[in-house]
Design a protein around this nucleic acid. Sequence first.
DNA 1: CGCGAGCTTGAACATTATCAAGGCAAGTGG
DNA 2: CCACTTGCCTTGATAATGTTCAAGCTCGCG
Lengths: 240, 240
Amino acid sequence: MASCTCCSQDCLDKLCAHKIPVFSSLDSEQMNHFSSLARHYQYRKGETMVLEGADLNALVVLNEGSAKAYKLTPDGREQILYVFSQGDFFGERNLLGGRTSAYTVEALEPVRTCTFGREEFYDLLRSNPDIAIKVIEELEKRMERMENAVQSMGVRSLDSRIGGLLLDFAEKYGDETPEGVLIRLPLSREGMANFLGIARETVSRKLSQLETDGVLRTVGNKAILLLKGEELRTMAGKIG
Amino acid sequence: MASCTCCSQDCLDKLCAHKIPVFSSLDSEQMNHFSSLARHYQYRKGETMVLEGADLNALVVLNEGSAKAYKLTPDGREQILYVFSQGDFFGERNLLGGRTSAYTVEALEPVRTCTFGREEFYDLLRSNPDIAIKVIEELEKRMERMENAVQSMGVRSLDSRIGGLLLDFAEKYGDETPEGVLIRLPLSREGMANFLGIARETVSRKLSQLETDGVLRTVGNKAILLLKGEELRTMAGKIG
DNA sequence: CGCGAGCTTGAACATTATCAAGGCAAGTGG
DNA sequence: CCACTTGCCTTGATAATGTTCAAGCTCGCG
């Protein structure tokens, strides 16, 4: 591994463990020790990080960039399950259950990761019982998000589902501006369609309609300026 | 609590902990001790066991009967997330995360439960580190099922989704017979519709069509005889 | 500046929801 | 034991909604 010419890479390395809330109960020394065990990788946009069904045997933490996790549906589409970004992790299932990856993970932009092997992770869990509880709590959070996803996929009205997605994105990838919230979209139209389980064209149409209604303004293809968040919230929440 | 006139209630009590795979690493003495801490409840069909948003503060194990867990969607429908039956449990999220219940749980038939309070559960986790790992593994399993649910809700073809549901039921509630697999349906047509996120009438129509095609035979409203499981599997898996 | 991927839009088509009417079955009370 | 009633299920017709196929456009990249 090349030595770094500036601090940045070094800092990133150190941050590996810091970035995961699950490890927050470690003291500084433990954190540094654990971080030093990490291995580092990077991926180009579009590169596959893990393949559905593959053995993974590592806890993978996203240090930089974002990635989508998806399963292939029987009819050949890709159903996106998660959009991971900085600080998110995956692979714990494979470490603990010993099963293979349930989904493919693909970089949406250049990605840097830190990974921890099974041994390191197990040792950590055994020596720090609190971590196990933290992991459970984190999983429960994720589970709850998943339950919400199922709930919203069960909603008949697509408007409501698209609204919900945009609001989620606004929260995670939005910046306040004088005009409204500027959402830097992590997914293309096709990506959003594959997240929602609908056709690409339908996403286009719905967004056009929302723009006509003055709820938002598209800024190129990779950003959306949310003008009337409240209206979206109403649409996503109340109206069917 | 009334003393029991026969062994059955007593046996059920003892089984509380035995029935949860998560506790399988306990030795017999620990198991009995833990079981003795349980409190027992029973519910009539249709009775609400927990309300979405309520404080629960207990791990609830189904000892007998079945129940559905659902969230209300913004448009007023109920989206069923889980069908719990004997041996399944819920409420751990509330114990560990301290948050309120994410869903309503309602008995589908007469139900008996054992519940464990926060203190007992915490003590158990602390004194048996293995249990924590088992809990994590169990959650991961559940998570994977949830991911599959999202995947299948993303599938456009309803035939495939209904097929998938019937196959799941066949596995969990089916008995082999000379003619085929007899599925004792835990849910009404409306229940299945609320599970799949579609209209009640559509479930009827699809089932009728499958009966016409000779894939299955309805046996009253509460059972289905699966004649050509293979055909269903093909429909659910390959064809869009 | 030009090319190509990804996006938008249109029109025809397929599917499902919705509304409405009728049927079957289980449980109730005479 | 039978008629009644109630709840759930089925079936039909119609309308709404999304998909698909096809064409043209735009953005963003080299």
